[in-house]
């Protein structure tokens, strides 16, 4: 960790006002005659963003109302935090929050460990051609939508599907991958890792590409085994980026993957597999409980926002990482 702290950018040093003429200390004012084309270029994107991103944020007022589409957002009665109170008392929504935390938490942990390990294994491959082929193939599932993957998995994991056939061929009991709550969670986490581990390896490979080969040579001369080299050169090279990725993924603790769950789940596994996003869709859009659905969704967005801000600060402080 020491090396990551060291690499943090130094604190900004205040420029001494004595050496700079007073007029240039103040930031120059923007010259409208020069910049109006830039504002014009931003206008379409700004209008679209206001309409489709900021107006819906205003629509969150529905969470504090007893919203009826007929009365609209300005005519519906105000109920305060009623829906939020209900959310924490209603057993179904409590269970849904718990499911989300479990599934998303497992995805975050293994979504970090598996690519880390995979990058180490790939680093030991010396045939460039083989390495390329591996990379090409493992990135692929990331680009295929969960409609397709869901359809394929539902087919392969059905009671008569190819996976259970293989299991019974080697003398094992068939498994209800998508029909039993615990197995469902297992399937969801494993298939999510399967879809994304290759893609998430990219940042680790990029970190490894920056390692100076002479480090390995020096270790070699000193008689370090390959395992020791991995332990003391390869892994430390990836730790800083692993810390950043891990910290930033905290913001996803309530993101259990709507696309995936929605395309795999069924009423049999609602007790263990239903997550906030699917619950919001069913209660609000399908059952018309708009205000309650909005409140649950808003709870998720707020927690996400707070965690992102905290984790971003942590990443900036301890790993010197800045996006903006």
């Amino acid at each position: 960790m020491k090396s990551t702290v060291k690499s943090a950018p130094p604190a900004p040093v205040a420029t001494s006002p004595a050496r700079i003429p007073r007029s240039s200390v103040r930031k120059p004012r923007e010259r409208w005659s020069l910049t109006w084309p830039l504002h014009l270029m931003l206008l379409p994107a700004v209008l679209v963003t206001i309409l489709f991103a900021y107006v819906p944020m205003g629509g969150l007022a529905m969470a504090f109302q007893d919203f009826k589409p007929y009365d609209g957002i300005f005519g519906s009665p105000f109920v305060g935090l009623e829906h939020f109170r209900f959310m924490f008392e209603y057993p179904d929504s409590k269970q849904v929050i718990l499911n989300t935390l479990i599934i998303a938490g497992l995805k975050i942990v293994f979504g970090l460990l598996v690519p880390f390990a995979f990058a180490i294994l790939l680093n030991e491959i010396r045939m460039i051609f083989f390495k390329r082929v591996v990379q090409t193939l493992v990135y692929l599932p990331h680009f295929i939508s969960w409609v397709i993957l869901g359809a394929i998995l539902t087919d392969m994991l059905s009671s008569e599907g190819i996976v259970n056939q293989t299991l019974s061929a080697i003398g094992l009991q068939p498994v209800f991958w998508l029909g039993d709550g615990n197995w469902f969670r297992f399937t969801v986490v494993v298939s999510d890792i399967w879809q994304n581990f290759g893609f998430n390896t990219i940042v680790f490979l990029a970190a490894l590409a920056g390692v100076n080969p002479s480090l390995y040579e020096a270790a070699e001369v000193d008689g370090a085994s390959r395992w020791r080299q991995t332990l003391h050169i390869t892994m430390p090279a990836m730790i800083p980026i692993a810390v950043v990725v891990g910290t930033l993924s905290l913001g996803n603790i309530l993101n259990a993957g709507f696309d995936q769950i929605f395309n795999l789940y069924n009423p049999l596994v609602y007790d263990k597999g239903d997550i906030i996003d699917t619950f919001v869709y069913r209660t609000a859009i399908l059952n018309g409980q708009y205000s309650f659905g909005t409140a649950v969704g808003m709870f998720k967005s707020m927690v996400g926002l707070i965690l992102i801000v905290i984790s971003y600060r942590l990443a900036a402080k301890y790993a010197g990482y800045r996006i903006f």
Binding site: L60, A284, G293
Partner: peptide, 10 residues
């Protein structure tokens, strides 16, 4: 983000 319900209403 506002989430799916306000977007749907919009």
């Amino acid at each position: 983000s506002g989430g799916i319900v306000p977007s749907y209403m919009l």
